[in-house]
Amino acid sequence: MTGPHGGLPSRLAPRNATPQHAARSVQLDPLTDPRRPLRLELAGLRHQVVGVTACLIAGVDGLLVLHDSRSPGEPHDVAAMAAAAHGISRTCGGALGQGQFQEVTIRNREGCLAVYGIGDLALLAVVADGMVNIARLHLEARPVLGRLARMLDLTQL
């Protein structure tokens, strides 16, 4: 899903990306914002599944690409944690000969973090409260991942 020159996450989120940058980008005119379809997908997932509090797209390097603007908390931290979860999961997959990373869910007593792979270089991270229907979240996330993969491949952000 990427060309020979440079990976997708770095193209989408430069290393100097800051929270201010993310906050500013949501002010863009909806008609001209090239990331609007991605934002709509994230918002859609949050609306579809009760209990989802934050959705974001991160690079596998832990840098934030895009976050659902209504999400509470610090999206840059979540992006980094998603990448860390992906890292250990990918290591497990490799060591056990189970192929490429697909998904990892961390369940805590009062909430969960689900991380899905979008192609090889991007991740979808979903933060949810303790009442979330995890099976439903996985079901709803599947088609979203397909669409996000196509959008990230097509749009030059």
């Binding site: 009760v50 009442m131 229907n133 099976a135 439903r136 996985h138 079901l139």
Partner: peptide, 13 residues
């Protein structure tokens, strides 16, 4: 059946 399970969890709740 896994989709049915997830969807009907919402019914029960």
């Amino acid at each position: 059946m896994t989709v049915a399970a997830a969807a009907n969890t919402d019914v029960v709740r």
